[in-house]
Amino acid sequence: MSTIKEIQDEIVEEFELFDDWMQRYEHMIELGKSLPLIEEKYKTEENLIKGCQSKVWVHAEMEDEKLVFTADSDAIITKGIIAILVRAYSNQHPNDILEADNKFIDEIGLKEHLSPTRANGLVSMIKQLKMYAIAYKTQLN
């Protein structure tokens, strides 16, 4: 099993193959299609991330001390972003999720999505994933 850092590096390497933003966005949209989809029954108000212009739902479940995320969005760019995050953070121990940094987002040229004032904040998505990690971590103890 790869660590978060290893997966992040892998994603960065993938994005390095592209030399303009359009190809990077196209790749991101492609990644959105491989996102492990949240079950319809979990598309609830509670699982909706606040502060996004498009809808983003994230659901978390614990499997063998690892957090498994599923998600969806009604906008495909947002879906691509959440897919990148889920790929990096899913199937990891809550502690590792909490310790991870997000420099890789900058490195793959999606920095503009990192602004905390952006309507569809990556920041609020990351926060949500970490909130789940905190919640499940307490369950583990």
Binding site: I76, I77, A119
Partner: peptide, 13 residues
């Protein structure tokens, strides 16, 4: 069926 947010993001680029 394209979400307006997606269009806005791309044309901003």
């Amino acid at each position: 069926e394209i979400h307006p947010y997606d269009i806005g993001t791309i044309i901003d680029k």
